[in-house]
Design a protein around this nucleic acid. Sequence first.
DNA 1: CAAAATACTTACTAATTAGTAAGTAAGTAC
DNA 2: GTACTTACTTACTAATTAGTAAGTATTTTG
Lengths: 197, 197
Amino acid sequence: MTTPAAPAALAPDTRTRILDLAESLLLERGFNAFSYQHLAKALGVKPAAIHYHYPSKDDLGTAIVARQLRRLRKWRDLPRVADLPPAEQLEALFAVYDNHARQECRVCLFGALAADFRTLPAPMQAELRTFNGELTAWLAQVLAVGKATGALRFVGSPSAKAVQVLTTLAGALQVARVHDETPYHTIVSQLRLELLA
Amino acid sequence: MTTPAAPAALAPDTRTRILDLAESLLLERGFNAFSYQHLAKALGVKPAAIHYHYPSKDDLGTAIVARQLRRLRKWRDLPRVADLPPAEQLEALFAVYDNHARQECRVCLFGALAADFRTLPAPMQAELRTFNGELTAWLAQVLAVGKATGALRFVGSPSAKAVQVLTTLAGALQVARVHDETPYHTIVSQLRLELLA
DNA sequence: CAAAATACTTACTAATTAGTAAGTAAGTAC
DNA sequence: GTACTTACTTACTAATTAGTAAGTATTTTG
């Protein structure tokens, strides 16, 4: 008997392959840089197959952000992240951004959508706000604990510092795209230098 | 006798009106969010009139960035900016970003183009790199003098700090668009708190 | 086994896109 | 005043876009 609800990281179905490719293109080239035709050709299906799974591009975009939000929550609550001391939680966050930089100079979700934000469908805007809000709240908590235990050092409130650090990281990935990885690493080193007591 | 090469801030010609509107739309909505049709309709001319002045959208985009680069150089070399002490030069920079935030939540040029950078024509990419490079070099110099005179305080090299601060400011305008002006002001306050000795 | 849902393809529409070619009206040069 | 330039408009093309409707093969369900 084959497991009917198999996890199967082996062969993702079309629905997932569409979402994966669209997400890659969003983070690597921008939301307006790909069409249903591009996706279809690259996946070896017809454009209408994509409309079947994601009736409109709005739906597809919203699905991308919604999945990233689910991933964020899952990551944040992972024991190997949640149980870490603050300084290492910060390093775990940096590691996520490092992965983005290494994968075709991907920007983060926020950096990919912020400039075009006003042209995005309302549900996508709402999901992105939630995504950014939850990530900021998480980091604020990490910073608060870090400051209390003396592991992290900064002036001002944890939530103000959290907004600033996340904004800097989002921008750093954009700078990497415009120039090269060098300024990205410069910025992250600078953040480490300032934050790690 | 009327001055033939009058400065005439009174009535800009079509060429300039196109550039002004395209720049506004670029900073307020994104580069892919407007077409020659949109511009033409808003300006009361036909799309072909825009092609006359800027044959392709690439030309128009490049003209926007080139003008911003000219403006940056002019601003930087203005006596009322160049002759200021470092802390006030930094405040002058913040004031530019404040103006962006107040004008329809405009992002800066860099923030508007970074995400879509790979889809931009090569001349536009080159101009944007120059723009960002020169702005960073200017701020690095300001920070170096500020640190030497004790007016500004930071760890690490002036150029590393310059890259970090500009990246943070670019990101801050994007955050303002996604949420509201509040986080933008939080970030700038945080920068002031950290930098001003 | 029959009905129904799933996952598509084929074939199409209507709108929008950047861009071009040819014509024109008004001003400038000599 | 004739030639030329400037600054457009009109009218068009070819490509691409998102999206739809109808049909079909395969799988699932009762």
